[in-house]
Design a binder for these strands. Structure first.
Lengths: 212, 212
DNA sequence: TTAAATAAGGGGGTTTTTCCTGATGCTTTA
DNA sequence: TAAAGCATCAGGAAAAACCCCCTTATTTAA
């Protein structure tokens, strides 16, 4: 019995290449390729197009891997998502797993490991490398820290702080007193252990709160 | 006659997958794969390992695509480098071409275009997509602006400015007077049209002078 | 071989940021 | 219902950042 696989990746060359690898595995067969999450969801409207496994990239235009995975968990829970990405930061991996991915592979895995991961996922329902396991354990210790505990208004402020605006200007835009803005800043410095605005900017970019 | 190809990419799965695609082309054969520029250069010490074409990723640890390409231009000019990357920003593409790459492919090209590019490179010596051609034209108009006209010392300063250090601390590290550091800053603000340090940080990240 | 560009440094003043402590009112909750 | 939590705002001081205008060598280039 062959398991069916769909590859979702906005880089066509890569999805074709990865598809080629999967085809080479006896137990697996590529059904089709998608350029983004929306294409996949559209395709799944036809029950004939429902695969056993989706090999999903994380960064995609239109509908990214996280949103797409969450959608699949709700509407096609029988489809197993295996994330495959060059993103290595903890926050992204956690988001993906929380969205329902059964495993997370860095793109620097070897061919054999891809095959093993695919097999594990169809047979046991999940596959996690040591790296990912460590991140999971860590995330429990630091319990939902950093990004996840930031409030909406704070995130909005951070995004403005990543521009050339002064705090006074940010206050005007957010319709708050400059002193309130300074309060936000002070709380964030304390909470995130930062010394100054430059640190905040770097933090925001690292944690994808702001994208340059 | 078959042309020999070497794939250099730190993501093993990708280099294997791309290698698989290349193998499928009648006219081309994969000699071996490398995980970074250093591995490639080491391998080339043996004349038997010199390929016709190198398919080179840009972002790699140890020795990146730009440095590696520059080294090949000097030491193995007969080897044709075809860049293959997800990086799409003008500065990177220009650096790569200036380093001696014969073409630059985005990773979202189709299989057929990869084959065409490979053929063009061995037959005509170069292959450029419309996108890349446009960037080249543009770069002539804006003649070497921005990043390229920054001096070594300025770049070093910018990288420090992207941390939480104060200017005084940066001055100590760079063994310069704080006033000189302020001079660097003022010149950069003027040259790059910025208002404050935050702007400088964002500029640095956008232009890959600093990577968070 | 002058002139221009570059690199390093400085004086002094203004603005912004940073760091305190504390106050008000509103909502949640024990 | 009293306490606790939270968002909002304030005053003031000190530090850092920003801005302009300037000097002195050294190197480069016309």
């Amino acid at each position: 019995m062959e398991y069916s696989v769909v590859v979702v990746d906005d880089h066509i060359l890569l999805s074709q290449a990865i598809g080629g690898l999967v085809e080479a595995f006896d137990q697996f067969k590529v059904m089709y390729l998608c350029k983004n999450g929306q294409e996949l969801i559209d395709a799944l409207q036809n029950p004939k197009n429902i695969p056993d496994i989706v090999l999903m990239d994380v960064n995609m235009p239109i509908l990214n891997g996280i949103e797409t995975t969450a959608h699949l968990k709700d509407h096609f829970p029988e489809v197993k998502v295996l994330a495959l990405s060059i993103e290595e930061d903890d926050a992204t991996i956690l988001k993906m797993l929380r969205a329902g991915a059964k495993g997370y592979l860095m793109k620097d895995v070897k061919k054999a490991e891809l095959q093993e991961a695919l097999l594990e996922v169809v047979e046991n329902g999940y596959y996690h490398t040591n790296t990912v396991a460590k991140i999971l354990v860590n995330s429990l210790r630091h319990k939902e820290s950093s990004v996840l505990s930031l409030k909406e208004r704070e995130i909005e402020f951070i995004q403005h702080a990543c521009t050339e605006k002064t705090y006074r200007e940010i206050a005007d835009i957010m319709c708050l007193s400059p002193k309130t803005i300074e309060g936000y800043r002070d709380v964030l410095f304390e909470k995130l252990n930062l010394r100054n605005r430059t640190g905040l900017v770097i933090y925001a970019i690292k944690n994808k709160i702001f994208t340059p």
